[in-house]
Design a protein around this nucleic acid. Structure first.
Lengths: 235, 235
DNA sequence: TGGAAATGTCACAAAACCTTCACATAATCG
DNA sequence: CGATTATGTGAAGGTTTTGTGACATTTCCA
């Protein structure tokens, strides 16, 4: 399963360090920001799966950021866990009202952090997925995790599924093998680039694409592209 | 959506009053009970959507009642929020172990109460029983709590029953082990994910599903899915 | 209190899957 | 046109995921 990315927002670097250690132990990817501005653009840009947000921050406070995120269509789905100093009961309440999905009171144990984080992630996991994607009879439904061609169910492995999902959400654009490894396999894996070819082949086979230009197209020297248009040669 | 009904269980009438005011402000219907006995019959009788349960009560303690409620098939679906006095960490743990869906430490602000209550309700919302569910000869009757295949009674454990109930009310959708733990076991339990596999097996066995693709389907790398459609392999 | 039922965990078995490699085939270029 | 490079393809082998039976513990009930 793809690794989850957590964005840590805190102005104290020592706390960020601590959090990062704990999160990386639990196999999460980490992003960091020390101010609301940076945090905001990181969220738009990198789309983390969850935001750990400190309550007290210079400039725009954490709660202000949370409010802004939850109001915005684009970012409102991203779950937020607030970090609050001990005894700030009012803040806690405000935090939840603003739309934070949970809060943790400092000081906290790493295990509590990870436990709550997991709980929030699995609770919000299902809400993020969008409806089925259909393209000329080919349908991928993230909810049922199913692929059909003209309503005929199609069987494929997990990697092929992720590959197809990625292609369908990024049509008409060429991706190098390296980029595909990044996006579909997930950042830091060491895998031969040619492995992508093999999975491309399996995907084509599963979809029974006899002509190679149908949907999954080879762009020689560059990589692969998913497209509904069949390209004429441009000699 | 219909107005939610909350049952307040506390022996101190002053606290009940406070709670009732807060809840009615937030547009909830309220029931009240000052002892476990009354509470129990009210739950059976009026089926509240949530129970606010005080930890310390004369006679049967709150935790005892919680245990009883969560054990009973009929009442086990009703979410419970425990009210505990400050600093009783041990109780907190016990409370969660018994199956309470959340706990609140006294003293608390009304706003916090409502915020948590909303959160719990949101999580457990989907459990509306509306008569028996039938799917190709397989019937689950929430009222009599019975499962039959072609009118032949089928026997299974409570966990398998809840699992099946959840599946039947959420067909055609993949759930990860983690999500199943959340929905079927209840939010805050620590159980190995592989335990889900074992109960899946027990459910399959009880339903005598010889082919594994019948009804309870494995989605490799993702989780499990209940579905009547069978996927054929494309080798 | 004793026994039956249910539950969570583990270890091992079986199945599905992923990666790599070797070689085949196709495209490109001088 | 041959050499060269890029991609297609099938199979082997190791790895990961899932299935399954057994066991210890706890809960339930008579």
């Amino acid at each position: 399963m793809a690794q989850k990315t957590i964005l840590i927002v805190d102005d104290e670097s020592s706390i960020r360090d601590m959090l990062r250690v704990a999160l990386e132990m639990a196999e999460y990817d980490c992003l960091e920001a020390s101010d609301a501005q940076t945090a905001h653009s990181l969220i738009i840009d990198r789309k983390p799966d969850l935001v750990l947000l400190d309550w007290m921050m210079p400039g725009t406070s954490g709660i202000e950021l949370a409010r802004r995120l939850k109001r915005d269509e684009v970012t409102s789905q991203t779950p937020i866990i607030m970090l609050t100093a001990k005894g700030e009961e009012d803040n806690k309440v405000q935090g939840l009202e603003v739309g934070a999905d949970d809060y943790i009171t400092k000081p906290f144990s790493p295990r509590e952090l990870v436990a709550r984080l997991k709980a929030v992630l699995r609770r919000t996991d299902t809400l993020v997925d969008s409806g089925p994607i259909t393209v000329e009879g080919l349908t991928l439904d993230p909810v049922s995790h199913r692929v059909t061609i003209n309503d005929q169910p199609v069987q494929m492995g997990p990697t092929e599924y992720r590959l197809l999902e990625f292609f369908l959400t990024h049509q008409e654009r060429v991706y190098s093998r390296s980029q595909l490894l990044d996006h579909v396999w997930g950042g830091n894996v060491y895998v031969e680039e040619r492995t992508v070819d093999v999975h491309i082949r399996r995907l084509r086979k599963a979809l029974q694409l006899d002509e190679h230009d149908r949907f999954v197209q080879t762009v020689r020297g560059a990589g692969y592209r998913f497209s509904t248009k069949v390209v004429e040669r441009t000699d």
